[in-house]
Design a protein around this nucleic acid. Structure first.
Lengths: 345, 345
DNA sequence: CTGAAAGCGCTTACAG
DNA sequence: CTGAAAGCGCTTACAG
């Protein structure tokens, strides 16, 4: 509970000016090696830690990055995706000693308002935009604001900010070809929120590939990613006259729910029904049989997004005109497990 | 990208001093009603938002609360608990327009270091301590530091800070009595990390109740909360000569994994094995059968913890001597679902 | 290489 | 009720 030590204290102890202390601490020219060493020694001894607010006020930077999540508490809680993403982001940020500010919002309007406030307050130096939509109002909004931002997802056309994304089309083709090779001809997909960019990309890839392979049927039903909807849609699909022999789920939570419905209906997975889940997570290995899934390193993805944001914020930041680059990550890999097998005769 | 508007701009526009603007904006006496209205009008019109750093520097408060999570990215991702807790915390904080700063750490030492730094930097006004242990070094550490903190869990004996907790003993008794009534006499429990406070409390409650009821056996095996360990321990328990007819899991993730193992071994849940999960989450309703579980409102719990922290930080904060109060929340309620049934004959 | 000073944008006693 | 000024703890041109 002792008083904080400031650069003034150090300056007094070292018999130099506050300016000299600042230069020494920040490794800038302006002090001799001897003075620097002496100042550094005293600072360490006194347990000096610079006050963030003072620093931020001087350099007008917040030393923090913001992330606003627009998902219900329930979805956020159960989807491993977000925590994994955040933990990756956080790792990169704390390596650069930047803080992470988190806010949960209900609507886009609220989200935009949060960005406006954060930037006006200079509470953050930049933000990460999650769940990028096909025509996403946030993209122009933050660009107009001048708030450095990175789209976590893409590619986004005509955007004025960088996007970091995985190729979602290729894995879609891979799944369908794999299922085709196993003899499946009636495939259904329980897709995510239709307005999301990657949902649209997957939709297109499935339709195309299904046509190319000549599948008997390729049904797509959109959902909100929750277990409830996953279960309900699965139940409907499996109760239909010409039920699919394989179902692809756009997230792990729905796939687990779908597996539960199969059990409920007495269908054997994989003999009577094959299941594939997007976004391999520990969840997919919890079930019996374990779920065949598409593996991506979400945490590394988060780290990568944070790195791009850091270059945007840093001293050597690209000019606003040069910010619209796009970084592509390694696409998801198919990890076959017990939930997929040859199509029933 | 236009220049930020500051109180100086407003003062100039209104023809008053910066001090008057500050008084008006903060609803303090010192300006007439007319002047206040005028100033407020101009501020709104100019889209004024106060700079956080400047405010923090003046009042020496960070307007933010910190939370350091010491769990692996994998555990964090898959356990709905944390995101639900965080979303509750966040709701309370943003209502008070405080920010939430998040950091993920690997070790206790690192966690302590984060608290030291945060407080020295005045990056946070207080912290929430998760996963409280039986003799937790963080409790004294933050108290010594003078860093306002709330223990998320308890009760903690001899603590110098408030604890917010649920009674864990009562639900343990409730489960065992319920299972006993269903005829179960051999019960096993796959418990959480042994050093955690609530694990110890549950351990004691189970042992006592089992003795009181005269159960044939009450086995407890500790784990790390992961699905892997949950599955492995379940497999071992179910392969033993005198296998339990009911298993209680200390979290939802392990319970789901345990259900998978039962399927794998061809055991019918609930006819041959009953399963109970702590911490009801959407995960428990994803499976078939759905899991009987202990329901708590984790999000509300988080909100409550944040509220207590806010009183500690606020203007009317209790003196350090009066901070060691303890707030008890409503205990978990048993929600019977398909995973429990009469013990096999 | 070093020191004294101004400035970042607020808040808050202190005089009028 | 109002204004002018000092201060929070840093950084950074600007003179010596």
């Amino acid at each position: 509970m002792t008083r904080r030590v400031t650069i003034a204290d150090i300056a007094a102890a070292a018999g130099v000016s506050k300016g000299a202390v600042s230069y020494a601490l920040n490794g800038r020219p302006g002090v001799s090696e001897n003075t620097r060493r002496k100042i550094l020694g005293i600072a360490a001894e006194m347990g000096f830690v610079p006050n963030r607010a003072a620093r931020s006020l001087s350099v007008s930077s917040a030393q923090a990055v913001g992330i606003a999540l627009r998902r219900s508490a329930r979805t956020l809680g159960i989807e491993p995706y977000f925590m994994e993403l955040i933990s990756g982001i956080e790792a990169t940020l704390s390596a650069g000693s930047l803080g992470l500010t988190l806010q949960i919002v209900d609507t886009v309007e609220e989200e935009l308002e949060v960005y406006r406030r954060w930037w006006a307050e200079r509470r953050v130096d930049g933000v990460l935009l999650c769940d990028v939509g096909a025509s996403d109002p946030r993209l122009d909004f933050v660009a107009d604001l001048g708030l450095p931002a990175v789209a976590v997802g893409g590619p986004v056309e005509g955007a004025r900010l960088p996007a970091v994304w995985h190729d979602d089309a290729e894995p879609c083709r891979e799944i369908l070809e794999y299922l085709y090779a196993l003899g499946h001809r009636r495939v259904a997909r329980i897709a995510g929120l239709p307005h999301l960019l990657h949902t649209a990309i997957r939709d297109a890839a499935h339709t195309e590939t299904a046509a190319a392979l000549g599948l008997e049927s390729m049904t797509t039903v959109h959902s909100d990613y929750t277990g409830e909807q996953g279960a309900r849609i699965t139940r409907r699909l499996l109760s239909s006259a010409n039920r699919p022999t394989a179902i692809i789920y756009d997230n792990d939570v729905m796939a687990v729910a779908g597996l539960g419905v199969a059990h409920e209906l007495g269908l054997h997975v994989s003999e009577q029904l094959s299941i594939v889940a997007w976004d391999d997570s520990p969840l997919c290995r919890l079930t019996h049989p374990a779920l065949t899934s598409l593996t991506r390193d979400i945490s590394a993805y988060g780290s990568h997004c944070a790195e791009v944001l850091l270059t945007l914020i840093g001293a050597d930041a690209p000019s606003p005109e040069k910010r619209a680059f796009s970084v592509q990550c390694r696409p998801a890999q198919l990890s076959p497990r017990g939930s997929t097998g040859p199509a029933p005769a």
